[in-house]
Design a protein around this nucleic acid. Structure first.
Lengths: 224, 224
DNA sequence: ACATTCTTATAGTGTGACTATGAAAACTCC
DNA sequence: GGAGTTTTCATAGTCACACTATAAGAATGT
């Protein structure tokens, strides 16, 4: 009953791998990628376990053996997409976050944090949308979504606190309200809306987000 | 087979009502309000027709007789909430839109259009979220959501075109891009995030939206 | 060889949207 | 007040799909 720490893909870090567990892990990977593609194109509820098994070229019981529930497949896929790798490092401890916080220039910080968010959304925005939608049908996924939102808020708070130490925020703008604004501007919903639906490029979105955060969080100085 | 125009609640305008159809309409109304409450609290998929029938105090076959599908109940509820009344008047022909377009002051226009959006979201934001979520499970609801988004985009384009005639937009900002930005700022997702989830007041959101649109769409003049 | 782990085949359960049929109940019209 | 129409209800059943149960076959480790 003792739980070993696991990477999103199911690997136990720092432990030599069996040929069996390696094969099992590759099966899991095939299932996750197949499911992610189906989820993001056809939708969560619309995608049946049967379809996932077919696309991954495994039998249906194997899917259940590997993940247990459909929900587990989605959360695994999300973790992988958000992290971008197989390391279970919290966002706040990622290097780009440290770099952004350490940047003495407020604009530099904003640029770095927008780039970081964009990097994540490039991989994970569609899946985040899937989770958000499925949250209304599955209470457990609702918790996952709530946790993700809470996490993003925490990150934004850390960023706006840092920002407030480097420059003055706009008159009457508390660090908390600034975090809320950043949360809204840098939300996956906005990214999806502008990039996926309105056809903005990844770079356009970043430029816009940096500009928007600058204009909305810091006082207007003449050099616009 | 000739279809009469109908209000969202099912009334045929300008036609004297039977006692029967009046009763039927009141049952439809009971079903819609019951369903809307359940949808927004428990979610679309989670809410069963049985539960709706129970809350509306009608039998299950009556629900099917009145609406046919679960989806039809949701779309009816959404139409009612968005319109705010029983009149099938398109958004662009509503009085507040005319007033906003006619306002010679750019800031006045922004204030009016934000107030109009806020007024709609005050009633319809939760249901819009329900539709957005359910859109991934039901292709027909996906169309409803797409139509709603398209409609909001059209409205924003009209507004930004009008704005561009009253004042200059920011350097390099086309009217189309401005509409996209307004679409994002005034999205129901942002309203839900800031008001429902982050605890902003209805008025705070409006003030913020007016300020954000001013800063993001019009050039910075010194009087900030 | 033998045990362990992974994969598969087959059959079944439970839930919930939707359909079918038919019969009461309420209302309109004559 | 009775015939016809519309609305409501009762009952039963279909179908899709997530998930479970059981057991057997295949691959790998010792």
């Amino acid at each position: 009953m003792s739980e070993a720490p696991r990477t999103p893909s199911g690997r136990v870090p720092g432990k030599k791998e069996d040929g069996r567990t390696a094969r099992a892990r590759s099966t899991r990977a095939r299932i996750v990628t197949a499911a992610a593609e189906l989820f993001t194109t056809a939708g969560y509820t619309t995608t049946s376990i049967t379809a996932i098994a077919a696309k991954a070229e495994v039998s249906e019981p194997t899917v259940y053996y590997s993940f247990g529930t459909k929900r587990a497949i989605l959360t695994t896929a999300l973790d992988l997409a958000v992290a971008g790798d197989d390391e279970p490092i919290p966002t706040l401890e990622r290097q780009w976050v440290r770099d952004a916080l350490a940047d003495p220039d407020p604009l530099g910080q904003l640029r770095r944090q927008v780039a970081g968010a964009a990097d994540i959304y490039l991989r994970a925005a569609p899946l985040l949308d899937v989770v958000r939608s499925a949250a209304t049908t599955d209470p457990d996924l609702a918790e996952v979504w709530a946790a993700n939102l809470q996490q993003r808020l925490t990150v934004q708070r850390v960023f706006t606190d840092a920002l407030a130490r480097k420059t003055t925020l706009r008159d009457g703008l508390t660090a908390e309200a600034a975090a809320d604004v950043a949360l809204a501007v840098l939300s996956p919903e906005n990214y999806n809306l502008l990039v996926a639906h309105r056809g903005w490029s990844h770079q356009q979105w970043q430029d816009w987000a940096v500009d928007a955060l600058t204009r909305l969080l810091t006082p207007a100085d003449g050099h616009a």
